[in-house]
Design a protein around this nucleic acid. Sequence first.
DNA 1: CGCTGCGTTGAGCTTCTTCAACGATCGTGG
DNA 2: CCACGATCGTTGAAGAAGCTCAACGCAGCG
Lengths: 227, 227
Amino acid sequence: MEIRQHLSQVDLFKGLTVEELEAIARIVSNKEYKKGQLIFSEGDEGVGFYLVISGRVKVYKLSPEGKEQIMHIFGPGQPFAEVPVFEGSRYPANAETMDNCKLFFFPKKDFVSLILENPSLAMNMLASLSQRLKQFSNLIETLSLKEVPGRLASYLLYLSDKNGSIDEFKLDIAKSQLASLLGTIPETLSRIFTKMGNRDLIRTNGPQITILDRTGLEDLAEGETKL
Amino acid sequence: MEIRQHLSQVDLFKGLTVEELEAIARIVSNKEYKKGQLIFSEGDEGVGFYLVISGRVKVYKLSPEGKEQIMHIFGPGQPFAEVPVFEGSRYPANAETMDNCKLFFFPKKDFVSLILENPSLAMNMLASLSQRLKQFSNLIETLSLKEVPGRLASYLLYLSDKNGSIDEFKLDIAKSQLASLLGTIPETLSRIFTKMGNRDLIRTNGPQITILDRTGLEDLAEGETKL
DNA sequence: CGCTGCGTTGAGCTTCTTCAACGATCGTGG
DNA sequence: CCACGATCGTTGAAGAAGCTCAACGCAGCG
Protein backbone atom coordinates (compact mmCIF):
# COMPACT_ATOMS: atom_id res chain seq x y z
CA MET A 1 0.00 0.00 0.00
CA GLU A 2 1.21 3.41 -0.91
CA ILE A 3 0.68 5.09 2.44
CA ARG A 4 2.89 2.61 4.23
CA GLN A 5 5.63 3.21 1.68
CA HIS A 6 5.72 6.85 2.64
CA LEU A 7 5.53 6.19 6.36
CA SER A 8 8.46 3.80 6.32
CA GLN A 9 10.74 6.53 5.02
CA VAL A 10 9.95 8.99 7.77
CA ASP A 11 12.11 9.54 10.86
CA LEU A 12 9.06 9.64 13.10
CA PHE A 13 8.29 6.04 12.22
CA LYS A 14 11.76 4.61 11.88
CA GLY A 15 12.51 1.35 13.61
CA LEU A 16 8.87 0.29 13.61
CA THR A 17 7.72 -3.13 12.45
CA VAL A 18 5.63 -3.67 9.36
CA GLU A 19 2.59 -4.42 11.50
CA GLU A 20 3.04 -1.20 13.42
CA LEU A 21 3.35 0.78 10.22
CA GLU A 22 0.20 -0.83 8.93
CA ALA A 23 -1.65 0.11 12.06
CA ILE A 24 -0.53 3.67 11.61
CA ALA A 25 -1.38 3.67 7.92
CA ARG A 26 -4.91 2.68 8.81
CA ILE A 27 -5.62 5.92 10.65
CA VAL A 28 -4.05 8.23 8.07
CA SER A 29 -6.07 10.33 5.72
CA ASN A 30 -4.68 11.89 2.59
CA LYS A 31 -5.02 15.62 2.04
CA GLU A 32 -4.11 17.93 -0.80
CA TYR A 33 -3.63 21.68 -0.63
CA LYS A 34 -2.92 24.31 -3.23
CA LYS A 35 -0.04 26.71 -2.92
CA GLY A 36 -0.77 29.50 -0.48
CA GLN A 37 -3.69 27.73 1.11
CA LEU A 38 -4.40 28.09 4.82
CA ILE A 39 -4.31 24.75 6.65
CA PHE A 40 -5.37 26.02 10.06
CA SER A 41 -5.35 29.21 12.09
CA GLU A 42 -4.13 29.95 15.57
CA GLY A 43 -6.82 29.03 18.06
CA ASP A 44 -8.52 26.47 15.85
CA GLU A 45 -9.51 23.21 17.45
CA GLY A 46 -6.57 20.82 17.09
CA VAL A 47 -8.07 17.60 15.83
CA GLY A 48 -4.84 15.96 14.80
CA PHE A 49 -1.42 16.52 13.32
CA TYR A 50 0.07 16.44 9.83
CA LEU A 51 2.98 14.95 7.96
CA VAL A 52 4.35 16.66 4.88
CA ILE A 53 4.61 14.30 1.89
CA SER A 54 5.42 16.85 -0.78
CA GLY A 55 5.72 20.61 -0.87
CA ARG A 56 6.49 22.92 2.03
CA VAL A 57 4.40 24.32 4.87
CA LYS A 58 5.12 27.40 6.94
CA VAL A 59 3.96 27.72 10.52
CA TYR A 60 3.81 31.33 11.65
CA LYS A 61 2.37 33.88 14.03
CA LEU A 62 0.87 37.23 13.14
CA SER A 63 0.99 40.49 15.05
CA PRO A 64 -2.16 42.62 15.24
CA GLU A 65 -0.57 44.97 12.67
CA GLY A 66 -0.11 42.05 10.31
CA LYS A 67 3.60 41.44 10.70
CA GLU A 68 4.42 37.77 10.23
CA GLN A 69 6.97 35.73 12.14
CA ILE A 70 7.65 32.35 10.57
CA MET A 71 8.33 29.86 13.34
CA HIS A 72 9.36 26.99 11.11
CA ILE A 73 9.20 25.74 7.56
CA PHE A 74 8.40 22.05 7.17
CA GLY A 75 9.39 19.93 4.19
CA PRO A 76 8.75 16.33 3.07
CA GLY A 77 9.01 13.80 5.88
CA GLN A 78 8.41 16.28 8.67
CA PRO A 79 5.44 16.23 11.05
CA PHE A 80 3.87 19.43 12.32
CA ALA A 81 1.09 20.61 14.61
CA GLU A 82 1.69 17.86 17.17
CA VAL A 83 1.30 20.15 20.16
CA PRO A 84 -2.51 20.02 20.51
CA VAL A 85 -2.39 16.25 20.24
CA PHE A 86 -0.63 16.06 23.59
CA GLU A 87 -1.37 19.29 25.41
CA GLY A 88 -4.36 21.53 25.26
CA SER A 89 -6.63 21.39 22.30
CA ARG A 90 -5.92 24.37 20.10
CA TYR A 91 -3.27 25.11 17.51
CA PRO A 92 -0.88 27.73 18.89
CA ALA A 93 -0.04 29.19 15.46
CA ASN A 94 -1.12 29.40 11.83
CA ALA A 95 -0.10 27.01 9.05
CA GLU A 96 -0.10 27.69 5.33
CA THR A 97 1.29 25.90 2.30
CA MET A 98 4.16 27.44 0.35
CA ASP A 99 3.72 25.05 -2.60
CA ASN A 100 1.10 22.63 -3.76
CA CYS A 101 1.23 20.05 -1.01
CA LYS A 102 0.33 16.50 -0.23
CA LEU A 103 -0.13 15.92 3.47
CA PHE A 104 -1.04 12.99 5.67
CA PHE A 105 -3.40 13.74 8.50
CA PHE A 106 -3.35 11.77 11.77
CA PRO A 107 -6.47 12.14 13.92
CA LYS A 108 -5.62 12.94 17.51
CA LYS A 109 -7.65 10.25 19.20
CA ASP A 110 -6.51 7.39 17.03
CA PHE A 111 -2.93 8.44 17.21
CA VAL A 112 -2.91 8.69 21.00
CA SER A 113 -4.20 5.12 21.15
CA LEU A 114 -1.33 3.99 18.98
CA ILE A 115 1.20 5.80 21.15
CA LEU A 116 -0.14 4.16 24.28
CA GLU A 117 0.38 0.74 22.73
CA ASN A 118 3.67 1.43 21.10
CA PRO A 119 6.59 2.66 23.19
CA SER A 120 8.95 2.94 20.20
CA LEU A 121 6.53 5.25 18.51
CA ALA A 122 6.32 7.25 21.71
CA MET A 123 10.10 7.50 21.87
CA ASN A 124 10.26 8.64 18.26
CA MET A 125 7.69 11.30 18.97
CA LEU A 126 9.62 12.43 22.05
CA ALA A 127 12.72 12.72 19.89
CA SER A 128 10.80 14.72 17.33
CA LEU A 129 9.41 17.18 19.87
CA SER A 130 12.82 17.50 21.49
CA GLN A 131 14.36 18.38 18.19
CA ARG A 132 11.70 21.01 17.61
CA LEU A 133 12.40 22.41 21.06
CA LYS A 134 16.05 22.70 20.18
CA GLN A 135 15.22 24.50 16.95
CA PHE A 136 12.98 26.90 18.82
CA SER A 137 15.75 27.60 21.33
CA ASN A 138 17.95 28.50 18.44
CA LEU A 139 15.34 30.78 16.98
CA ILE A 140 14.89 32.52 20.31
CA GLU A 141 18.63 32.93 20.66
CA THR A 142 18.91 34.24 17.15
CA LEU A 143 16.07 36.72 17.47
CA SER A 144 17.12 38.02 20.81
CA LEU A 145 20.89 37.92 20.80
CA LYS A 146 21.93 38.51 17.21
CA GLU A 147 21.46 41.48 14.95
CA VAL A 148 19.95 40.96 11.54
CA PRO A 149 23.27 40.66 9.66
CA GLY A 150 24.31 37.90 12.07
CA ARG A 151 21.00 36.12 11.55
CA LEU A 152 21.36 36.23 7.80
CA ALA A 153 24.97 35.06 7.96
CA SER A 154 23.89 32.10 10.11
CA TYR A 155 21.14 31.23 7.70
CA LEU A 156 23.41 31.35 4.66
CA LEU A 157 25.96 29.12 6.37
CA TYR A 158 23.17 26.74 7.36
CA LEU A 159 21.95 26.58 3.77
CA SER A 160 25.45 26.02 2.51
CA ASP A 161 25.87 23.13 4.95
CA LYS A 162 22.60 21.63 3.86
CA ASN A 163 23.91 21.65 0.30
CA GLY A 164 27.07 19.80 1.25
CA SER A 165 29.11 22.79 2.41
CA ILE A 166 29.32 24.10 -1.09
CA ASP A 167 29.86 27.80 -1.73
CA GLU A 168 27.24 28.25 -4.39
CA PHE A 169 23.56 27.57 -3.91
CA LYS A 170 20.07 28.93 -4.31
CA LEU A 171 17.88 30.40 -1.62
CA ASP A 172 15.17 27.86 -0.90
CA ILE A 173 12.55 30.49 -0.12
CA ALA A 174 11.63 33.94 -1.39
CA LYS A 175 13.53 36.81 0.17
CA SER A 176 10.40 38.29 1.66
CA GLN A 177 9.74 34.97 3.37
CA LEU A 178 13.33 34.82 4.52
CA ALA A 179 12.85 38.24 6.08
CA SER A 180 9.88 36.91 8.02
CA LEU A 181 11.85 33.87 9.11
CA LEU A 182 14.71 36.06 10.36
CA GLY A 183 12.37 38.35 12.26
CA THR A 184 12.78 41.38 10.05
CA ILE A 185 11.26 43.00 6.94
CA PRO A 186 12.18 42.74 3.24
CA GLU A 187 13.65 46.24 3.06
CA THR A 188 16.07 45.61 5.89
CA LEU A 189 17.06 42.23 4.50
CA SER A 190 17.68 43.69 1.08
CA ARG A 191 19.98 46.39 2.47
CA ILE A 192 21.98 43.77 4.31
CA PHE A 193 22.35 41.64 1.22
CA THR A 194 23.69 44.69 -0.53
CA LYS A 195 26.14 45.43 2.28
CA MET A 196 27.36 41.85 2.33
CA GLY A 197 27.97 42.13 -1.37
CA ASN A 198 29.92 45.37 -0.94
CA ARG A 199 32.12 43.75 1.70
CA ASP A 200 32.80 40.86 -0.69
CA LEU A 201 31.35 38.36 1.75
CA ILE A 202 28.92 37.02 -0.82
CA ARG A 203 27.79 37.61 -4.36
CA THR A 204 24.11 37.50 -5.21
CA ASN A 205 22.22 37.08 -8.42
CA GLY A 206 18.55 36.90 -7.64
CA PRO A 207 18.10 33.85 -5.44
CA GLN A 208 21.54 32.55 -6.39
CA ILE A 209 24.13 33.03 -3.64
CA THR A 210 27.88 32.61 -3.80
CA ILE A 211 29.88 32.63 -0.61
CA LEU A 212 33.11 34.50 -1.20
CA ASP A 213 34.40 34.81 2.36
CA ARG A 214 33.22 32.00 4.56
CA THR A 215 35.33 33.07 7.52
CA GLY A 216 33.94 36.56 7.31
CA LEU A 217 30.41 35.19 7.37
CA GLU A 218 31.20 33.01 10.35
CA ASP A 219 32.57 35.98 12.26
CA LEU A 220 29.37 37.86 11.51
CA ALA A 221 27.23 34.92 12.60
CA GLU A 222 29.13 34.72 15.89
CA GLY A 223 28.72 38.42 16.48
CA GLU A 224 32.46 39.02 16.36
CA THR A 225 32.16 41.47 13.49
CA LYS A 226 29.77 44.14 12.30
CA LEU A 227 28.82 45.05 8.80
CA MET B 1 9.90 7.09 51.29
CA GLU B 2 10.29 10.78 50.85
CA ILE B 3 11.24 10.77 47.18
CA ARG B 4 8.03 9.06 46.17
CA GLN B 5 6.05 11.63 48.10
CA HIS B 6 7.51 14.37 45.98
CA LEU B 7 7.06 12.48 42.73
CA SER B 8 3.40 11.82 43.35
CA GLN B 9 2.66 15.54 43.44
CA VAL B 10 4.25 16.30 40.12
CA ASP B 11 2.31 16.68 36.85
CA LEU B 12 4.88 14.66 34.96
CA PHE B 13 4.07 11.62 37.07
CA LYS B 14 0.37 12.08 37.58
CA GLY B 15 -1.87 9.10 37.00
CA LEU B 16 0.91 6.61 37.64
CA THR B 17 0.53 3.65 39.98
CA VAL B 18 2.40 3.33 43.23
CA GLU B 19 4.61 0.65 41.71
CA GLU B 20 5.48 2.87 38.80
CA LEU B 21 6.32 5.73 41.11
CA GLU B 22 8.54 3.44 43.12
CA ALA B 23 10.34 2.34 40.00
CA ILE B 24 10.95 5.96 39.14
CA ALA B 25 12.00 6.82 42.67
CA ARG B 26 14.66 4.16 42.46
CA ILE B 27 16.56 5.92 39.70
CA VAL B 28 16.38 9.40 41.19
CA SER B 29 19.31 11.05 42.85
CA ASN B 30 19.00 14.01 45.15
CA LYS B 31 21.00 17.15 44.45
CA GLU B 32 21.43 20.43 46.25
CA TYR B 33 22.65 23.69 44.79
CA LYS B 34 23.39 27.08 46.30
CA LYS B 35 21.84 30.25 44.95
CA GLY B 36 23.52 31.41 41.78
CA GLN B 37 25.23 28.12 41.11
CA LEU B 38 25.72 26.84 37.58
CA ILE B 39 24.01 23.50 36.98
CA PHE B 40 25.26 22.95 33.45
CA SER B 41 26.48 24.90 30.46
CA GLU B 42 25.42 24.89 26.86
CA GLY B 43 27.22 22.10 25.05
CA ASP B 44 27.78 19.96 28.14
CA GLU B 45 27.11 16.28 27.80
CA GLY B 46 23.45 15.72 28.73
CA VAL B 47 23.49 12.79 31.11
CA GLY B 48 19.95 13.22 32.35
CA PHE B 49 17.26 15.67 33.28
CA TYR B 50 16.18 17.45 36.45
CA LEU B 51 13.08 18.12 38.47
CA VAL B 52 12.86 21.20 40.68
CA ILE B 53 11.84 20.35 44.25
CA SER B 54 12.46 23.72 45.83
CA GLY B 55 13.85 27.03 44.62
CA ARG B 56 13.96 28.29 41.05
CA VAL B 57 16.20 27.60 38.09
CA LYS B 58 16.75 29.77 35.06
CA VAL B 59 17.62 28.31 31.68
CA TYR B 60 19.26 30.85 29.42
CA LYS B 61 21.47 31.53 26.44
CA LEU B 62 24.37 33.96 26.27
CA SER B 63 25.55 36.08 23.36
CA PRO B 64 29.29 36.39 22.73
CA GLU B 65 29.14 39.90 24.22
CA GLY B 66 27.63 38.49 27.37
CA LYS B 67 24.00 39.49 26.92
CA GLU B 68 21.68 36.97 28.51
CA GLN B 69 18.35 35.76 27.21
CA ILE B 70 16.37 33.78 29.76
CA MET B 71 14.44 31.06 27.95
CA HIS B 72 12.44 29.90 30.93
CA ILE B 73 12.31 29.98 34.71
CA PHE B 74 11.45 26.70 36.38
CA GLY B 75 9.86 26.37 39.81
CA PRO B 76 8.94 23.48 42.12
CA GLY B 77 7.34 20.53 40.32
CA GLN B 78 8.75 21.39 36.91
CA PRO B 79 11.19 19.25 34.95
CA PHE B 80 13.90 20.77 32.80
CA ALA B 81 16.73 19.74 30.47
CA GLU B 82 14.78 16.87 28.96
CA VAL B 83 15.89 17.59 25.41
CA PRO B 84 19.20 15.69 25.43
CA VAL B 85 17.45 12.69 26.95
CA PHE B 86 15.52 12.19 23.73
CA GLU B 87 17.45 13.93 21.00
CA GLY B 88 21.12 14.51 20.64
CA SER B 89 23.35 14.38 23.64
CA ARG B 90 24.20 17.94 24.63
CA TYR B 91 22.37 20.60 26.59
CA PRO B 92 21.28 23.36 24.22
CA ALA B 93 21.44 26.11 26.87
CA ASN B 94 22.78 27.02 30.29
CA ALA B 95 21.07 26.41 33.62
CA GLU B 96 21.67 28.23 36.87
CA THR B 97 19.89 28.39 40.21
CA MET B 98 18.18 31.61 41.30
CA ASP B 99 17.75 30.42 44.88
CA ASN B 100 19.10 27.63 47.01
CA CYS B 101 17.62 24.62 45.30
CA LYS B 102 16.80 21.01 45.84
CA LEU B 103 16.64 19.08 42.61
CA PHE B 104 15.99 15.51 41.61
CA PHE B 105 18.20 14.13 38.89
CA PHE B 106 17.01 11.41 36.49
CA PRO B 107 19.79 9.60 34.60
CA LYS B 108 19.08 9.43 30.90
CA LYS B 109 19.59 5.71 30.39
CA ASP B 110 17.49 4.57 33.31
CA PHE B 111 14.72 6.98 32.48
CA VAL B 112 14.50 5.93 28.85
CA SER B 113 14.07 2.33 30.00
CA LEU B 114 11.18 3.39 32.19
CA ILE B 115 9.55 5.27 29.33
CA LEU B 116 9.77 2.26 27.06
CA GLU B 117 7.94 0.16 29.65
CA ASN B 118 5.41 2.75 30.65
CA PRO B 119 3.18 4.37 28.06
CA SER B 120 1.45 6.65 30.57
CA LEU B 121 4.77 8.07 31.57
CA ALA B 122 5.58 8.57 27.90
CA MET B 123 2.29 10.39 27.36
CA ASN B 124 2.94 12.61 30.36
CA MET B 125 6.36 13.45 29.01
CA LEU B 126 4.88 14.21 25.59
CA ALA B 127 2.43 16.56 27.24
CA SER B 128 5.23 18.23 29.14
CA LEU B 129 7.34 18.80 26.05
CA SER B 130 4.31 20.04 24.13
CA GLN B 131 3.59 22.57 26.81
CA ARG B 132 7.16 23.77 26.68
CA LEU B 133 6.88 24.08 22.92
CA LYS B 134 3.81 26.24 23.33
CA GLN B 135 5.62 28.45 25.81
CA PHE B 136 8.53 28.81 23.44
CA SER B 137 6.17 29.78 20.62
CA ASN B 138 4.84 32.47 22.85
CA LEU B 139 8.30 33.70 23.67
CA ILE B 140 9.18 33.84 19.98
CA GLU B 141 6.00 35.72 19.22
CA THR B 142 6.63 38.11 22.06
CA LEU B 143 10.23 38.80 21.13
CA SER B 144 9.58 39.22 17.48
CA LEU B 145 6.16 40.81 17.21
CA LYS B 146 5.82 42.97 20.32
CA GLU B 147 7.75 45.97 21.46
CA VAL B 148 9.14 46.04 24.95
CA PRO B 149 6.20 47.91 26.55
CA GLY B 150 3.86 45.27 25.17
CA ARG B 151 6.04 42.49 26.51
CA LEU B 152 6.10 44.03 29.96
CA ALA B 153 2.35 44.60 29.93
CA SER B 154 1.80 40.93 29.02
CA TYR B 155 4.08 39.81 31.80
CA LEU B 156 2.37 41.95 34.40
CA LEU B 157 -1.04 40.66 33.37
CA TYR B 158 0.30 37.12 33.48
CA LEU B 159 1.63 37.66 36.98
CA SER B 160 -1.64 39.18 38.07
CA ASP B 161 -3.51 36.15 36.76
CA LYS B 162 -1.15 33.80 38.54
CA ASN B 163 -2.01 35.62 41.76
CA GLY B 164 -5.74 35.18 41.26
CA SER B 165 -6.32 38.17 38.97
CA ILE B 166 -5.62 40.54 41.79
CA ASP B 167 -4.40 44.06 41.09
CA GLU B 168 -1.63 44.19 43.64
CA PHE B 169 1.30 41.81 43.70
CA LYS B 170 5.04 41.51 43.92
CA LEU B 171 7.42 40.84 41.06
CA ASP B 172 8.63 37.29 41.47
CA ILE B 173 12.08 38.03 40.05
CA ALA B 174 14.55 40.90 40.13
CA LYS B 175 13.99 43.60 37.54
CA SER B 176 17.32 42.92 35.89
CA GLN B 177 16.27 39.30 35.46
CA LEU B 178 12.92 40.39 34.14
CA ALA B 179 14.73 42.48 31.56
CA SER B 180 16.62 39.41 30.43
CA LEU B 181 13.41 37.39 30.28
CA LEU B 182 11.73 40.05 28.15
CA GLY B 183 14.67 40.26 25.78
CA THR B 184 15.83 43.70 26.80
CA ILE B 185 18.19 45.42 29.25
CA PRO B 186 17.59 46.87 32.73
CA GLU B 187 17.85 50.50 31.58
CA THR B 188 15.14 50.10 28.97
CA LEU B 189 12.90 48.21 31.34
CA SER B 190 13.29 50.85 34.01
CA ARG B 191 12.32 53.64 31.61
CA ILE B 192 9.22 51.75 30.61
CA PHE B 193 8.20 51.19 34.21
CA THR B 194 8.51 54.92 34.70
CA LYS B 195 6.41 55.68 31.62
CA MET B 196 3.72 53.23 32.69
CA GLY B 197 3.63 54.98 36.02
CA ASN B 198 3.29 58.39 34.36
CA ARG B 199 0.39 57.13 32.27
CA ASP B 200 -1.31 55.85 35.44
CA LEU B 201 -1.33 52.30 34.11
CA ILE B 202 0.45 50.99 37.17
CA ARG B 203 2.03 52.18 40.37
CA THR B 204 5.34 50.70 41.49
CA ASN B 205 7.12 50.63 44.78
CA GLY B 206 10.23 48.56 44.38
CA PRO B 207 9.09 45.09 43.42
CA GLN B 208 5.53 45.87 44.49
CA ILE B 209 3.20 46.49 41.56
CA THR B 210 -0.32 47.88 41.54
CA ILE B 211 -2.37 47.69 38.39
CA LEU B 212 -4.38 50.89 38.03
CA ASP B 213 -5.68 50.49 34.49
CA ARG B 214 -6.07 46.88 33.48
CA THR B 215 -7.72 47.70 30.17
CA GLY B 216 -4.91 50.05 29.28
CA LEU B 217 -2.39 47.32 29.99
CA GLU B 218 -4.32 44.85 27.87
CA ASP B 219 -4.37 47.27 24.96
CA LEU B 220 -0.63 47.68 25.29
CA ALA B 221 -0.13 43.91 25.43
CA GLU B 222 -2.17 43.47 22.26
CA GLY B 223 -0.20 46.15 20.48
CA GLU B 224 -3.24 48.36 20.08
CA THR B 225 -1.63 51.23 21.94
CA LYS B 226 1.78 52.78 22.33
CA LEU B 227 3.30 54.31 25.38
C1' DC C 1 31.29 51.79 57.80
C1' DG C 2 32.24 50.87 53.33
C1' DC C 3 31.35 47.64 49.64
C1' DT C 4 28.69 45.55 46.28
C1' DG C 5 24.77 44.72 43.52
C1' DC C 6 20.58 46.66 41.86
C1' DG C 7 17.90 50.19 39.96
C1' DT C 8 17.39 54.74 37.88
C1' DT C 9 18.36 58.61 34.89
C1' DG C 10 20.50 61.31 31.08
C1' DA C 11 22.83 61.97 26.56
C1' DG C 12 24.14 60.23 22.33
C1' DC C 13 24.11 56.90 18.93
C1' DT C 14 23.06 52.58 16.27
C1' DT C 15 19.88 49.71 14.30
C1' DC C 16 15.85 48.90 12.38
C1' DT C 17 11.34 50.25 10.63
C1' DT C 18 8.21 53.18 8.03
C1' DC C 19 6.71 55.33 4.02
C1' DA C 20 7.21 56.17 -0.68
C1' DA C 21 8.71 55.37 -5.21
C1' DC C 22 10.34 52.57 -8.77
C1' DG C 23 12.30 48.51 -11.70
C1' DA C 24 12.04 43.73 -12.87
C1' DT C 25 9.77 39.48 -13.46
C1' DC C 26 6.10 36.41 -14.31
C1' DG C 27 1.70 34.66 -15.43
C1' DT C 28 -2.62 35.63 -17.56
C1' DG C 29 -6.01 37.16 -20.55
C1' DG C 30 -7.03 39.75 -24.49
C1' DC D 1 2.15 37.33 -28.89
C1' DC D 2 1.86 41.30 -26.48
C1' DA D 3 0.13 44.01 -22.74
C1' DC D 4 -1.21 44.36 -18.37
C1' DG D 5 -1.40 43.74 -13.51
C1' DA D 6 0.41 41.66 -9.54
C1' DT D 7 4.09 40.34 -6.84
C1' DC D 8 8.68 40.79 -5.47
C1' DG D 9 12.80 43.11 -4.69
C1' DT D 10 15.46 47.38 -4.27
C1' DT D 11 16.57 52.07 -2.86
C1' DG D 12 16.15 56.59 -0.44
C1' DA D 13 14.91 59.66 3.32
C1' DA D 14 13.15 60.23 7.74
C1' DG D 15 11.93 58.74 12.18
C1' DA D 16 11.29 55.59 16.18
C1' DA D 17 12.86 52.22 19.36
C1' DG D 18 16.16 50.46 21.93
C1' DC D 19 21.10 50.14 23.21
C1' DT D 20 25.63 51.95 25.12
C1' DC D 21 28.11 54.50 28.26
C1' DA D 22 28.39 57.04 32.32
C1' DA D 23 26.99 58.71 36.63
C1' DC D 24 24.59 58.28 40.79
C1' DG D 25 21.29 56.82 44.71
C1' DC D 26 20.00 53.30 47.58
C1' DA D 27 19.71 49.08 50.29
C1' DG D 28 21.62 45.07 52.29
C1' DC D 29 25.42 42.85 54.22
C1' DG D 30 29.82 41.70 55.74
